[in-house]
Design a protein around this nucleic acid. Sequence first.
DNA 1: ACTCTGACTATTT
DNA 2: CAAATAGCCAGAG
Length: 114
Amino acid sequence: MTKYNPKTLDFFEQVYQVVQLIPEGRVTTYGAIAKYLGASKSSRIVGWAMNASHNRYEVPAHRVVNRVGLLTGKHHFDTPSLMQELLEAESVEVEEDKVVKFKTLFWDPSIQAL
DNA sequence: ACTCTGACTATTT
DNA sequence: CAAATAGCCAGAG
């Protein structure tokens, strides 16, 4: 961070807020968040924001997976199994590092379904 | 200032 | 269908 351009600041802040809006038992993707923020091609930055999130707010980063429901970021948690455990604690089935019925559990920030 | 890396994705070969 | 390619941009060295 350090460099607080108005744009990037909003982007990071909004990412955190959107992630916090994810209901329990649901998951979303980096791309969906990026697209919701009007930067569909900046999905990597969403991941970077997540990476930095551990120092900022309590963000349920475990509810954010890649576009196919793969738990790509599990390695960045305290323990590699933590992400899956957190998901399973919310009734999200995980097999082979990916979310089962991902398409059904997917939560689109644009919809913000309750 | 430059280069490289990365929790991504869509498109093209 | 698997692999490469190109956008995207913030940190670290």
